[in-house]
């Protein structure tokens, strides 16, 4: 059996706090967007969504700080040289190998806790989509200070569309993320790791 202490306490706390904030934003956002008063009344959803949005900004900043000074940043460095090969191997595994008992093409280690697909998607989410979501959210909050139009189109409308599309994409990420974590050695291996910090595998890899 192998065991790696992959997730320090601060990282686990951040992860679950970030997850809580994000789910709150998603539920209140959906409730507002579709006017689902039975889910959360609109006048309750708005302040919660706005507050959670501000908290998500803080959470994102913590993530960046943690990556810069907490040593976690190395996991998000993309190795462009090996990326195509790793991506293909990982995708083939998820689409085929996983059903025929093929060995996992990636082995978790203290140095590399994320496979190529994970790295790419997490970098895309945390450094691509998340800042856009956060900035567009803030733009909503201060929309009265923005120009009326941008490129001849209503500024608020552009912001709204960007916010919505990015939110849809992040909701999609959440679904995939929630499922993919069950593809470890056992369905709960990865979940347990994010709770205890320890990544344990029976096989030695």
């Amino acid at each position: 059996m192998t065991a790696f202490y992959l997730y320090p306490l601060w990282l686990r706390l951040w992860h679950w706090l970030n997850a809580l904030i994000f789910v709150t934003l998603l539920v209140t956002g959906v409730s507002m967007h579709f006017t689902l008063n039975w889910l959360i009344p609109f006048d309750v959803a708005v302040p919660i969504h706005n507050t959670a949005g501000v908290l998500l900004t803080g959470s994102w900043l913590l993530f960046v700080i943690g990556n810069l000074w907490g040593g976690n940043g190395k996991h998000y460095l993309i190795n462009l040289r090996t990326l195509p090969k790793d991506l293909i191997a990982q995708t083939r595994y998820y689409l085929h190998g996983i059903f025929v008992g093929a060995p996992h093409p990636f082995h978790v280690s203290a140095e590399h806790k994320l496979n190529a697909l994970q790295t790419l998607s997490y970098v895309g989410v945390m450094y691509g989509l998340m800042p856009v979501l956060i900035l567009s959210g803030w733009a909503f909050l201060f929309s009265t200070s923005l120009p009326e139009t941008l490129f001849g189109i209503g500024t608020v409308w552009i912001i709204a569309i960007v916010h919505l599309v990015v939110a849809w994409m992040l909701a999609l990420f959440l679904i995939v993320h929630s499922y993919i974590i069950t593809t470890g050695e056992t369905p709960t291996t990865n979940l347990k790791a994010m709770v205890t910090g320890w990544h344990k595998e029976q096989s030695s890899g």
Binding site: F34, V156, L164
Partner: peptide
Amino acid sequence: VGMTRNPWMDWIGLGVILLMILGVAAHG
């Protein structure tokens, strides 16, 4: 508020989400 109540966008968004859920369910 939101300003994006475009039914087409909603249907596309919901459709993609649904397909993804079905996809991972089938995979699982």
